[in-house]
Design a protein around this nucleic acid. Structure first.
Lengths: 122, 122
DNA sequence: CCATCATATTCCGATATCGGCATGTGTCAA
DNA sequence: TTGACACATGCCGATATCGGAATATGATGG
C-alpha cells in the first residue's frame, strides 16, 4: 500500500504575485491611475474612488508586493506613491507586439517611400 | 417575513472577459508569444509549448473571446492568428504611465536640447 | 494613560479559475 | 460508411480571489 494515493489534481500557483495579475484587477488599475497625480494617503484614495477602506488596503498590499507602489509613513497616515519603473515587464512584453502591430503600416510606409524615391529619380 | 434575507455577500464579476485578465495568465502569454511567428494550428501550439490539448483549446477560447486571436479552419485543423490591434487598451493604459516614467529622462533631454541650441546660437 | 483617528489584518462565504480527464464534434481518407 | 485524426467542450476537485464585516495595530493629542 502506497503512503499516499495519487490525487489527480494540480495545485494552482499564486497569481497575484506578478505585475500582470496585479494590474489585471480593475480596482487596482483605478488605484494606480489615481496615484499618477501624486502621493496619496489611503483615506484619500478611499474617498476619491468610493471604495471601502479594507478593500483599498488589501489592493495596496498586492500592489506593494509586486513593487508597483511604495509606502511612506507620515504621522498616523500612510502615503502611497507610484513606482512606474515596475511596469517594465509589461512594457517589454507589449513591445514585442507593437512591431507586429505596425508591420502593415511599416510596409505601407516603405511602399510610399519607394514611390517617392522613384519619383525623384525620374 | 421578507421573501429573501440579505445575503451579505457580493457576486464577483467575471474577469476573463477583458484583455488585461486574458493576458494576465502566463500560459496565455506564451501562446500569444508563439503566435508572433505567425498563424499556427492548435496541435502545433500543443507541441511547441508542451501543454495539454484541452488546456490550449481553453486558453485559445479565452483569447478569442477578447479578440486577441482569430481562428481560420483549414481542413480538419484550425489555424489561430494574432490580432495585435486588440492590445490597444493595454497599450493606452500603459501610455499614461510612460510619461511619468520618463519624466526624468525627458527633463534631461530638454536640458540637453537647450544646451545644444545655445551652442548653435553662439 | 486614554480616546480617537488612520490603516492593516483576519475571518468568512460566494464565486472564478485552472488543470486533468473523458467525451463530443467535425473533417478527411480509404 | 467507417475509422482515425484534430480540436472543442463538459464535468470535476482543488484552490485563488474578491468583498464585507469585525477586529487588531499604531500613532497622536489631551
Amino acid at each position: 500500500m502506497p503512503i499516499s494515493e495519487y490525487d489527480g489534481t494540480v495545485a494552482r500557483s499564486s497569481t497575484t504575485s506578478d505585475v500582470f495579475n496585479a494590474v489585471a484587477e480593475a480596482r487596482r488599475r483605478e488605484i494606480l491611475d489615481t496615484l499618477i497625480a501624486g502621493e496619496k494617503a489611503v483615506g484619500t484614495i478611499v474617498n476619491d474612488l468610493s471604495l471601502s477602506q479594507p478593500q483599498v488596503s488589501k489592493h495596496l498590499r498586492v500592489l506593494s508586493e509586486v513593487g508597483l507602489v511604495r509606502c511612506r509613513p507620515e504621522g498616523r497616515r500612510r502615503l502611497y506613491r507610484l513606482e512606474p519603473a515596475r511596469l517594465g515587464p509589461l512594457h517589454e512584453w507589449l513591445a514585442k507586439y507593437e512591431q507586429t502591430w505596425n508591420e502593415r503600416l511599416d510596409r505601407m510606409d516603405d511602399y510610399l517611400k519607394e514611390l517617392q524615391e522613384q519619383g525623384e529619380q525620374q
